[in-house]
Design a protein around this nucleic acid. Structure first.
Lengths: 135, 135
DNA sequence: CTAAACTTTGACATCAATGTCAAGGTCAAG
DNA sequence: CTTGACCTTGACATTGATGTCAAAGTTTAG
């Protein structure tokens, strides 16, 4: 599949797909004509990247995260102490974001639930499971 | 307390505090000398704003969220259908970010737990409760 | 073959969030 | 009173994530 298709399926612009590649977050094989070629996994990867970036994760960190996932297989990975510290720091940053967003999610949900338009909650029904603890 | 102190306590630059005020996210009383004056609640508000912005929430939306929280008291708020729809849309956006960040959090945790530096997890100990479901 | 739709690279534009610097007022300690 | 630390406003610079446009090659449908 070519760039236009992957962009459409992932819901981003082709510009961004190229940008992600330029930032080393994504690799594409090239056809003999020079066109980038992708598969379904790439669509998922692009979606993942876009989500992370929209969540305020800098592309530099996104790259690290993707590498961690790619290397998820390794049973007992080894990394310099400094890297582990950095990751731990990023981890708390991410945890803080989650807590913060969870709070806002609850705020919106509670608000909507009390308006006369509570119905929109079930329309845009997503995962209206039990309120998860703020973690 | 003045701007330098609130900025220090909230962990942001004074520049940002003024920026937030300019974006109507924050209000300050003014002393007779023209200096902005804040209290502890403002520190919390600034921290909250900064967290939201760092989570990729645009200031325009942050403003909406803060207004919702401020108006949390109203028992049965009324809002135009269009506003409710907009909030519902933002809600799913936020839920997606939470899911995405939760996944990355798990990735980092799992990775660190398998390295020889698993200790950093308890050092930067934060809330190491049971892994919450990805919601 | 031709026209429309796509792709490539590269440059330039934009927008939001921040930093930084300057010129001047305020305040507190010595 | 003077000096250093802090505050004011305002302007300008930067950075990251994007959009947009242009010139040129490619592919595909008719």
């Amino acid at each position: 599949m070519r760039i236009g298709e992957v962009a459409r399926q992932a819901g981003v612009s082709t510009r961004l797909v190229r940008y992600y590649e330029q930032q080393d977050l994504l690799a594409a094989t090239r056809g003999s004509n020079g066109y980038r070629e992708y598969d379904e996994d790439d669509v998922a990867r692009v979606q993942h990247i876009a989500s992370l970036v929209q969540s305020g994760i800098a592309t530099k960190l996104v790259k690290e995260l993707l590498e961690l996932e790619d290397a998820a297989a390794e049973a007992r990975p080894s990394c310099p102490r400094a890297v582990a510290d950095m990751l731990a720091t990023e981890l708390v940053g991410i945890e803080e974001r989650i807590a913060c967003l969870s709070r806002s999610r609850d705020t919106i949900r509670d608000y909507l639930a009390r308006t006369e338009h509570a119905a929109v909650l079930s329309e845009h029904a997503h995962d209206l499971g039990a309120r998860s603890p703020v973690e």
